[in-house]
Amino acid sequence: MSSGITVADKYWWISLTSAKSNLAYLAEIGSRVFFLGVILYIFLRLWQVTYSETGSQTLGGLSLPQMLWYLAITESIILSGPRVAQSVDQDVRTGAISIHFIRPLSYPLYCLFNTLGERAVRFFVNMSVGALISVVFVGFVPMNWLGFFCFLTVLPLAFVIDFLGNFLIGLAAFWLEDTNGLVLIYSRMTMILGGMLIPLELFPDSWQATLKMLPFSAVVYGPARLFVSPDLAFYQDILFRQVVACIFFALAVAFVFRIASRRVFANGG
């Protein structure tokens, strides 16, 4: 490793390489946005009918255009998630993880920056399609630069929290026969409790405070809500909760990874 390359440079290049390699498969990513289109259309109809039957202009503080943009963002966040847990699971089961130990890289950080690069490309493609569908069906929502800036700052932290959650599940492969079940449940918890399908304001009143404190809302609801309805106080609140969630999960990953590393046995030559 050249002495001129700092630790930050190393991980930045991992992220960039991951993004570039995903750009090479843009057609493959493009084929997957078909599903995003189907989902958004179904939600558009669901909420169009709901707004019309209730006769309300706003539900949970959102108008119909805001609701569709909200859903476009939550869906883009969820559908852009790379298969982190499955990849870590494979590394553990095949023993490929031991190869990472002899590299001058931290395995969790390598996975994090690799994931961020991939997810950035996927999110951009998804969001482009989501925005197109939203503009065609409901037009634009009022935006300002401050709101857009707030959204752009909380989005990477949302991706980091989601990565850490998935990485922890992947590490469970050291102890469990199969982690697919955990992945499935985690992803559904993120969807429902995170407010992907329905904004948290439409949950029963007694649940809302608890749901907003859970990390799922910092991944999905927070960024999407900021995009459609920018608010500086809400921004500070979500940023604070994201930082707390990041610290908590990072400590959990460090702790579990340390214990798990002791269970790696390398044989052969």
Partner: peptide, 25 residues
Amino acid sequence: YRGAFYSQVVAMFINNCIWVWFWVL
């Protein structure tokens, strides 16, 4: 692979319950 089989069955059961829960909400 009994453990893997049961965990997948239970996870799918819970997954569907979560969707039903969304509709209940």
